[in-house]
Design a protein around this nucleic acid. Structure first.
Length: 463
RNA sequence: UCCUCGGUAGCUCAGUGGUAGAGCGAUCGACUGUUAAUCGAUUGGUCGCAAGUUCGAAUCUUGCCCGGGGAGCCA
């Protein structure tokens, strides 16, 4: 077990300390009488430099085993480094190689690799500077999410991964079945007979935990989900995954304005947390991945998001004189190009759009008094597009039933969801946040497959 | 799923009808308190797969597979 991370040694170690370093070799520079070895254990961006003199036991054998990718454990004295590049280094006295890595076949070089190539070696790519930085930031984001909600008394609720309902028509679903696919039981009408299946009815991987989160909010007030979500869409883009993590807070006794305030405070909190906990990683992204990463983070932390209604956004786009590929007119959904124009060109910061036409939004969103719009809000981020989607939910039973029917859904399928309006209904609101898009936005990584350790996407399930 | 660009050495790429190339990596050597070390030499190929055109195809044609970027769906 690693008890003394390289991050801790580099930060707090003093010359004269005896230290043990365990990790993987990044590079070796050999001289006649000694060798420099750079070791990384994933705890930080920096490597620790180790000097191995020829008087170390088994020097000749060990030196042959020291290659990029090999695992190493060594003990030595921490000394002040006589050369530039590091404050301290380790003068090794005992060295053990746990596992060699054949340099002829080990795929990672000391040089930069393309992310496309690294995706083909998903089991090794976390050993690179960029991917390890991404996953440290991802971890910090996760911790920040929980800390934010826990500080505010929100209950973390575990909503199911297997679900019987397509809760919001959010997209194609993965079937979950134990039926024998070579001999599927059929009903007299030649439909698949799910009564013979494991659950006695059709079941799917969840596309959202929102409806269940609403159930829990009606008992605990403020709750949030943070877990995996699945979409079987054949989406081949740098912003979509078949398996992704979603954060969905749901608040009872809450309206759209409070919902927006919470979402904005939440994003600001996460950015601040990561800037404080992953400074070196963030500087690395700013230098190597996207020169605007630090400025964006400062922008989020220090500025109010722009807020305007869908209707005003349409007017603004129509008057902009900008040429768009897709038409702009009231009643049509905004396209990526429109969202990006607003966030990147007009306001140059996140934009919260509210009050969308009822016909382009989901059934559960609360109808506004004008009868034409719903209390929905989307947060649009530069370069990423929609990062948060939320709404005040329809708490009035009759209106909710009307909306279900109008969208071609059967209210009977939603009996327990409707019961929440029959028994002690309250105004409530919530939002959903794609966790990987947050990490993308934070790090400047352009492809969503590079911000999750094991991406699932069409034809992508190897690692 | 649609549009578009691409697939040549372990990696990144050049090569557009006539003997398969470079840089990096790796290997060997030299040198050096080095820092993606440096210098020299060596090594390295089913040109994505299949069919076709041609005296001759990495190069032209067709189909398929895979990847990047963009779009749709959405988070």
């Amino acid at each position: 077990m690693i008890t003394n991370y390289i991050a801790a040694i580099l930060r707090g170690g003093n010359p004269g300390d005896t230290v043990t370093v365990k990790g993987w070799i990044r590079s070796k520079r050999e001289a006649k009488e000694f060798a420099f070895v750079d070791i990384n254990d994933g705890s930080c961006m920096a490597n620790i430099q180790v000097v191995i003199d020829k008087d170390v036991p088994d020097y000749a054998t060990i030196l042959k085993q020291i290659n990029t990718g090999a695992s190493i454990e060594l003990t030595g004295e921490l000394v002040e480094s006589p050369a530039k590049g590091q404050r301290v280094e380790v003068k090794a006295s005992q060295v053990k190689i746990h596992g060699e890595a054949d340099p002829e076949t080990y795929p990672l070089q000391k040089k930069r690799h393309s992310f496309e190539f690294l995706r083909d070696i998903g089991h090794l790519r976390s050993r690179t500077n960029t991917l390890s930085a991404v996953f440290r930031v991802r971890n910090a984001c996760s911790a920040a999410v929980h800390q934010f909600f826990q500080e505010r008394g929100f209950l973390w609720v575990h909503t199911p991964i297997i679900s019987a309902s397509d809760c919001e028509g959010a997209g194609e679903m993965f079937n979950v079945t134990t039926l024998n696919l070579k001999n599927v039981p059929l009903t007299p009408e030649k439909e698949i007979d799910y009564s013979k299946d494991f659950f006695g009815k059709a079941a799917y991987l969840t596309v959202s935990g929102q409806l269940e989160a609403e159930v829990m909010a009606m008992a605990f007030g403020n709750v949030y989900t943070f877990g995996p979500t699945f979409r079987a869409e054949n989406s081949n883009t740098s912003r979509h995954l078949a398996e992704f993590w979603m954060i969905e807070p749901e608040m009872a006794f809450c309206d759209l304005l409070e919902d927006m305030d919470l979402a904005e405070t939440f994003l600001r909190y996460i950015f601040k947390y990561v800037m404080e906990h992953c400074q070196a990683d963030m500087e690395f992204f700013n230098e190597r991945i996207d020169k605007t990463v630090l400025a964006t983070a400062e922008n989020i932390i220090n500025n109010q998001f722009e807020r305007l209604t869908y209707t005003n956004a349409i007017t603004l786009l129509e008057k902009s004189g900008q040429k768009f590929e897709y038409p702009v007119s009231w009643g049509l959904d905004l396209q990526s190009e429109h969202e990006r124009y607003l966030a990147e060109e007009v306001f140059k910061k996140p934009v919260i759009l509210t009050d969308y036409p009822v016909d382009i939004k989901s059934f559960y969103m609360r109808l506004n008094d004008d009868g034409k719009t719903v209390a929905a809000m989307d947060i649009l981020a530069p370069k990423i597009g929609e990062i948060i989607g939320g709404s005040q939910r329809e708490e009035r039973l009759d209106l909710l039933e009307q909306r279900l029917t109008a969208q071609g859904l059967n209210p009977a399928d939603y009996w327990w969801y409707l019961d929440l309006r029959r028994y002690g209904t309250v105004p409530h609101a919530g939002f959903g946040l794609g966790f990987e898009r947050l990490v993308q936005f934070m790090t400047g990584m352009t492809n969503i497959r590079d911000v999750i350790p094991f991406p699932r996407a069409p034809l992508t399930v190897e690692f």
